[in-house]
């Protein structure tokens, strides 16, 4: 059946899971950088998740999500064999991937590592040399290291507490890569807003183009509502149809971070109720 979860992997128990979903018509079109919008129950909210991988032959897409609030927590209650109510995509502009002489540095943080994986894979398939740079607070929170190893020439790891790889932030590793003299064609960064802002800043200092994938709040995802608007180079752009990837050097990250808090009290209320009752209040 359409949208059925074929495989579920708990990557970080209680926090991050990976779903392989039967969605042939989405898989057939999914390109790196695309996302889907889904709803879990008839009274549910529409939320966007990046397509972390797609297999057109098998007719499947892979989603990786971090449990942050009501909808992701509810999604996490679904098991193999169950279906996602609504799943729509692929949405957004795909990553512009072209052959490069220099290296492509793909930087990922937190759940963004999984989203970045599809982009790294795209560059790898286009014949580009790819270095993956990934980071998390601690070893247990690091995702997709093995998957990335399959599509990157090198994978560099940083953890805040030094439990795996280098102790420190991904930007430290990035600065070293940029400083060692080998030509870098492009940087791609997917992760928390502060991380993308920091990577863009470093990229700017070294004069290397840097693409970031923005996670603004979305509603329809097809360019009708304007909820997802972001300021890029002083202009208003719409992440769901113009993006979600933009030139990191031009993005107003402060505005993005603020706009993500727009509905915080209501989100907390929904999540608290969900945790208490552990059921969806689906009225119908």
């Amino acid at each position: 059946m359409a949208n059925t979860i074929l495989r579920k992997r708990r990557l970080i128990p209680g926090q991050t899971s990976e779903l392989v979903i039967d969605a042939p018509h989405v898989a057939a079109k999914a390109r790196p950088g695309n996302f889907v919008i889904l709803r879990v129950c008839p009274t549910g909210e529409r939320i966007p998740l990046t397509i972390a991988d797609a297999d057109a032959d098998a007719g499947t897409i892979t989603l990786v999500y971090l449990v942050l609030g009501k909808t992701t927590a509810h999604l996490d209650t679904l098991e193999e064999g169950e279906a996602i109510l609504d799943l729509c995509g692929p949405l957004g502009q795909p990553t512009h991937i072209r052959p490069h002489d220099g290296l492509v540095l793909c930087v990922g943080g937190g759940t963004g590592i999984a989203a970045m994986h599809h982009i790294a894979k795209g560059h790898h398939q286009a014949g580009n040399r790819v270095t993956g740079i990934i980071g998390a607070r601690t070893r247990g929170l690091l995702l997709f290291e093995a998957e990335l190893a399959a599509v990157c020439d090198t994978v560099l790891v940083a953890t805040d507490d030094g439990s795996h790889g280098r102790k420190g932030l991904v930007t430290h590793l990035l600065e070293e890569c940029l400083g060692d003299g080998s030509p870098v064609a492009e940087i791609v960064a997917v992760g928390p807003v502060p991380m993308m802002a920091a990577v863009s800043e470093v990229a700017g200092r070294f004069g290397v183009p840097c693409l970031v994938s923005l996670n603004s709040i979305m509603l329809d995802g097809i360019g009708m509502c304007g909820a997802c608007r972001v300021s890029v180079g002083g202009e208003t752009r719409f992440a769901c149809v113009d993006g979600p990837e933009f030139d990191g050097g031009l993005v107003d990250f402060k505005e993005l971070a603020q706009r993500l808090t727009a509905f915080r009290p209501m989100e907390q209320q929904s999540y608290a109720e969900f945790q208490q009752h552990h059921v969806c209040r689906c009225a119908n």
């Binding site: 529409r46 009501k70 727009a262 209501m266």
Partner: peptide, 29 residues
Amino acid sequence: NLIGVFSANEYLTRVNLGRAYAFPDWDTP
């Protein structure tokens, strides 16, 4: 782009398609 400035499309879509008038029974805020 300040928080609190909405397009009518977003505002009405939240309330109508998302039934936000019935929050928290419906999830869309």
